[in-house]
Amino acid sequence: MKRRRFLQIVGAAALCGTGARAATWQGRALGAEAGITLRGGALPKETLAHIRAELARIEAVFSLHQPSELTQLNATGRAAVSPALRAVLDEALMVHEATDGAFDPSVQPVWAALAAGRAPAALRHRLHDIKIGHDIRLAAGQALTLNGIAQGYATDRIAALLASAGYRDCLINIGEFAALGGDFRLGIEDPEAGILGQITLRAGRAVATSAPGALRFTDGQGHILGPDGQRPRWSSVTVEARTAMRADAASTGFVLMERPAIERAKARLGLGPVRLVDAEGGLVTL
C-alpha cells in the first residue's frame, strides 16, 4: 500500500494582508508534512527545539509505527491514562456520539486486516465499549487508531505552545491548519477535482480536510473506513471549527455520512462551514 500525499488545503496560497514578510519552517509529524508560517520574522532555534520536543512527546502517545502509549494499549488491552490520551479519547467519544457512530477509531482491526491484504472480520466492539478510569481498558480483540484526530490535537498543541511564547500571526500546519493571531487565505483542493477555490481562515480558528483518496489499500479502497462497513460518500470534506482536533475528527466521520446527518452533527458540535465535494467534483457548503 503506497501513500499518496494530497495537499487538500494549500497553505502556500497568498496570505491575507499585503507587504507581510513570512518565514516558514517545514518538517514531518505523525506521518504527514508539517509546517509553520510566521509573519514578520523567523522562529529561533530555541523555539524550534521546543516544537520538535512537543511533537516527539505527541508521537510517543499516538504513533502506530513506533512504540507508544497507543501501541501498548492495542497490544495489551490496557494502558495508563496520560493527559494527552485522555483529552483525545474524550473528544473522540464526543464526536463519535454526535456522528451517530460514523467516527469510530475502533476500526483499527479492519484497517490492519485490509492493509495486510486480508478480509476483515466484522467489528464486535465500538468506541463506546472502552472503559476509561484510572487506566484505559479495551474489550477483547479491540484496537484503536487515532489517526483521524491526533493530527488535529498536535496542531492545537503547537498553536498553544507558540501562543504561550508570545508569537502572533502564525499559520500552523501539523496535518491540519490553525490560524494564530491573524487571518490567512487557504486554497481548498480535492484529490480528484483539484483546487476548488479559497477560504479565509480567521484568527483563532482551525480547518481540516479528510479525503479517502489520500491513501488507498491495494484493492483501491480508500483509507477512511466505517465501523459498519460504510463506504465513503464524499471525495473530500473540509470542516472549520474552534479547534483543529474537532475539525479533524468531524471531517473524518462526515466522509461516511449523508448530508442531513452531517447537518445535524454540525449543529451538535458547534462547527463552522462544512464543505463537501462529491464524486463528480461538485462543491456544497453547509
Rank of each mutant, 00 (worst) to 15 (best):
Glu189Pro: 01
Ser164Ile: 00
Ala159Gly: 06
Gly148Lys: 09
Leu201Trp: 07
His128Trp: 06
Pro191Trp: 07
Leu171Met: 00
Ala112Tyr: 07
Ile149Gly: 14
Thr145Tyr: 02
Ile188Pro: 02
Glu176Phe: 09
Gly141Val: 05
Ala139Asn: 04
Arg205Leu: 07
Leu201Arg: 10
Leu127Asn: 10
Gly141Leu: 05
Ile132Asp: 13
Ile195His: 13
Arg137Trp: 08
Leu144Trp: 01
Ile149Leu: 12
Ala193Asn: 09
Arg126Gln: 15
Asp135Ile: 00
Gly148Trp: 08
Ala115Tyr: 07
Ile136Ala: 07
Leu171Asn: 01
Thr209Pro: 07
Gly148Tyr: 07
Asp219Asn: 15
Ile174Ser: 03
Gly175Arg: 08
Arg168Gln: 09
His134Ile: 03
Thr155Ala: 14
Ile188Glu: 06
Lys131Leu: 10
Ile174Asn: 03
Ala163Gln: 14
Ile136Tyr: 09
Gly133Pro: 05
Leu161Trp: 11
Thr145Pro: 05
Glu192Ala: 15
Ala163Trp: 02
Ser164Arg: 15
Ala116Lys: 12
Phe217Val: 06
Ala115Glu: 13
Thr218Trp: 08
Asn173Arg: 13
Tyr167Ser: 01
Ile199Thr: 11
Arg157Trp: 06
Phe217Met: 09
Gln221His: 02
Gly152Arg: 07
Arg157Asn: 07
Arg202Phe: 03
Gly204Tyr: 02
Ala179Thr: 00
Thr200Ala: 10
Thr200Ile: 13
Ala150Asn: 13
Ala150Val: 07
Ala163Asn: 12
Ala159Tyr: 00
Ile172Gln: 02
Gln142Ala: 01
Asp183Arg: 01
Arg216Thr: 15
Ala112Lys: 15
Leu215Ala: 14
Ala179Gln: 00
Leu162Ile: 04
Gly166Arg: 11
Trp111Lys: 08
Ser164Asn: 14
Leu215Asn: 12
Arg205Thr: 05
Thr200Ser: 10
Asp156Glu: 13
Asp183Thr: 04
Asp129Gln: 06
Asp190His: 09
Asp135His: 14
Ile149Glu: 06
Asp183Gln: 00
Phe184Asn: 03
Thr145Met: 03
Ala115Arg: 14
Leu215Gly: 09
Ile158Asn: 05
Arg118Thr: 04
Leu180Lys: 03
Leu180Met: 04
Asp190Gly: 11
Ile195Thr: 12
Ala122Phe: 00
Gly141His: 08
Gly175Pro: 12
Ala193Lys: 10
Gly148Cys: 08
Asp190Tyr: 02
Gly204Arg: 04
Thr218His: 15
Tyr153Asn: 11
Glu189Ser: 14
Asp169Cys: 07
Ser210Asp: 11
Arg124Glu: 10
Asp129Ala: 14
Tyr167Met: 01
Arg124His: 01
Asp190Pro: 09
Gln142Lys: 08
Leu123Lys: 03
Leu186Tyr: 05
Leu127Gln: 12
Thr209Asp: 08
Leu201Cys: 13
Ile172Arg: 04
